[in-house]
Design a protein around this nucleic acid. Structure first.
Lengths: 172, 172
DNA sequence: TTGGAAAGTCAACAAGGCTGCCCTATCAGG
DNA sequence: CCTGATAGGGCAGCCTTGTTGACTTTCCAA
């Protein structure tokens, strides 16, 4: 045992990995990994004149069919106008269906059409394939740690939203 | 022991966390965490009419002073024009200095000025603070897993680049 | 019946990606 | 000493996706 490993052991677990250098490595890992994470769907998307924003919308509509525009807005954390532009093209192209709300007719509930479902599957399968490979490679214990750190990194409100999402699909 | 935990134990570690549902949770965690990850520096940056791209440039110039424009281009994975726009404002504003290359006068070597160093510190300290809190919260073992999964997610060339970076600063 | 919330629309703008083309300076090999 | 290749910069123009602000329509609920 020598060098950095020895120092870490001497420091004890509490202060472990908290040097600026270790934090910087984490920051850079996030940057590079996120770029890879979005690369596969991005390639499919540019082929069909869509962008990352379309993917995100498809993802969350697929995951929670019937959610309202406002709810989607909150999840994505963008402005109405930004989402609207994206949503409009998806609706016009027949990937997303917007129905008048059941309990409140002002609301629009969003659903994927079969065509939308197909594209969502294709995109997320590409992304899952990479994630699956990374998970397999790193092992179950690493995956648990991965998820723990990511959750701890989120803003509290986002984290609550994220944790609540595990119970879906809700009834709409 | 009940529900999901019991099922996982029954499945054994090999197949653990590899259901589509678990992968989707990982994907969403990446999305939400990355948004939080960039939020703090983004706020500082918009106040001063800079963007995320400026932060990235400052980060890598700071980490490896004297690197060439081509090297920075490769790390960031963007086009020359894209970087040039950002770099020009940083140079004009006196945050980055561009010196004629030592071994090859065609090259430009990039350095942070004191002013550039100051901003880089401010930005990365905001980002480190969040990362530090997340690390502390999740614990050392989780952090190791976090890094393992992120590395496994990168493209091979990027991973090689990332791993090579741990030896810096090089001599320029 | 009326106030206000939800949704949508329009206009305008900015950051930061991209491509393509052109230019200069410089280096290295024949 | 040329000549081709390389590093960098600049210009024009494109796209996506984010922003703000103002405005309308729809429609629920008090």
């Amino acid at each position: 045992m020598q060098g950095k490993a020895r120092v870490q052991a001497m420091m004890g677990e509490d202060l472990l990995f908290l040097t600026d250098d270790q934090l910087r490595r984490g920051i850079e890992a996030m940057f590079f990994a996120y770029r890879a994470f979005t690369a596969d769907p991005d390639m499919i998307l540019t082929d069909m004149d869509y962008g990352r924003a379309h993917h995100r919308a498809l993802h969350f509509v697929n995951r929670d069919p019937g959610l309202t525009v406002t709810a989607l807005l909150a999840v994505l954390g963008v402005t109405k106008q930004s989402l609207n532009r994206v949503l409009r093209t998806l609706i016009d192209d027949g990937l997303v269906e917007s129905r008048v709300g059941r309990r409140d007719r002002r609301e629009r509930q969003l659903f994927l059409t079969p065509k939308g479902t197909a594209l969502e599957r294709r995109l997320s399968e590409a992304q899952r394939a990479r994630m699956r490979a990374a998970y397999r490679n790193a092992g179950p214990q690493a995956v648990a740690g991965f998820r723990q750190v990511l959750e701890a990194m989120m803003d509290p409100e986002t984290r609550a939203q994220y944790q609540a999402m595990k119970d879906l699909p809700e009834d709409h």
